[in-house]
Design a protein around this nucleic acid. Structure first.
Lengths: 199, 199
DNA sequence: ATCAGGCTAGGTCACTTGTCCTAATTCGTC
DNA sequence: GACGAATTAGGACAAGTGACCTAGCCTGAT
């Protein structure tokens, strides 16, 4: 296997292990075992554990950007695009109940470790926030676009945290229904307001 | 100092360190340094690190119960009692921005470690949920009481997670205002519904 | 076919971890 | 003041950590 492939495999396995077990609790031995290479061999690919973390964050940023671009490229309406975001809670519900949200839990762990990479990790939230705000602007919601986007982030993070604590799948379903209802009420309000201005 | 005092001091310092640095990342050496005793001396008070964790969770459960009891004992209206809960976000905003919510981050870490104490930690959430549901019932909201309580937990957890990631104090203020507005709208709806039934 | 470079395995390093032990000290009670 | 129990300090222990090294293996370009 070319080095390029091994390097990517290390990043991929580390990503999963950092998510499922936490960054600090994941050792080189764990990653080596998952990849199937020897421990000492790591330093040919990465100088330190922090460098792996940075590569993992870069990978997550890249994949998040790609996912958002894909959602953007599809011919869907802004409402359905936003629903794509919300439905991640259902798609990933098993992992979320077991390990929480990958973004939120990484940010919180890095904050506690006072790790310099914490701001880069938070950029993933920034990607979602900006993309969601763009959807709300596409719906004609300008002034409140960012606040609405943050509200969706807040809501989904809360659902992830509590479904992780309570391990309750039905709760996720109910909350997603609630978020969808809220979204539609926001859209209806916006349409009513537009009507009001036009009339 | 009596053993009882030392034991409590260990629990207290461990509580803070587990919150600010995480459970796994906090070593006996850290706790010993914070308490001002020698490392080896620990096993006279606690058999293992897990036993300290259990004691810390017990302490948090006890203190949470006491706080909720105090809020309950005051002559305040249910609305103001609920606001006491919400305003923890503002009171503790500095620590929340730095370390997240003590309950949420502990639950998430223990879930990743697959630690047996994770369910006991989640009981703290349970205390808040049940108490908040009680307040909503006191407002005449019966069927939806628990859903409303969970919504408050979700919202506050989301605010804690995102203010931790973005380190944005103004965001907390805006969200608390939003939560208060939502609470009042829930109360108004309930009163309107009551009127409707009576008339 | 050769040979240089990328790649790997396995070991070593100093250090920290949770756990445990023992000898000494303190303290309340008589 | 003396005794016994509670408490303490300071180490020792094996295991595991991130980091590093070196000797060899493969592979692809010449």
């Amino acid at each position: 296997m070319p080095a390029h492939g091994t390097r990517n495999l290390i990043i991929e396995k580390a990503d999963t292990l950092f998510y499922e077990g936490g960054f600090a609790a994941t050792s080189f031995a764990d990653i080596a075992a998952a990849v199937g290479i020897s421990r000492g061999n790591f330093y040919h690919h990465f100088k330190s554990k922090d460098e792996i973390l940075n590569a993992v964050i870069s990978r997550r940023l890249k994949r998040t950007r790609k996912m958002l671009d894909d959602w953007q490229a599809g011919g869907a309406q802004p409402r359905d695009r936003i629903l794509s975001f919300i439905h991640m809670l259902i798609t990933n519900r098993i992992k979320i109940m077991a390990f929480g949200c990958p973004v939120g839990t990484l940010c919180s762990e890095l904050a506690k470790l006072d790790h310099e990479a914490q701001h880069r990790a938070a950029e993933i939230f920034g990607l979602f926030r900006d993309w969601l705000a763009g959807q709300f602007r596409a719906l004609g919601i300008d002034a409140q676009a960012e606040a609405r986007a943050m509200h969706l982030l807040v809501w989904s993070q809360g659902v992830a945290a509590l479904s992780n604590a309570f391990h309750d799948e039905a709760f996720i379903q109910r909350e997603v229904a609630g978020i969808t209802q809220w979204l539609d009420s926001v859209i209806v309000d916006q349409n009513n307001q537009k009507e009001h201005i036009c009339s």
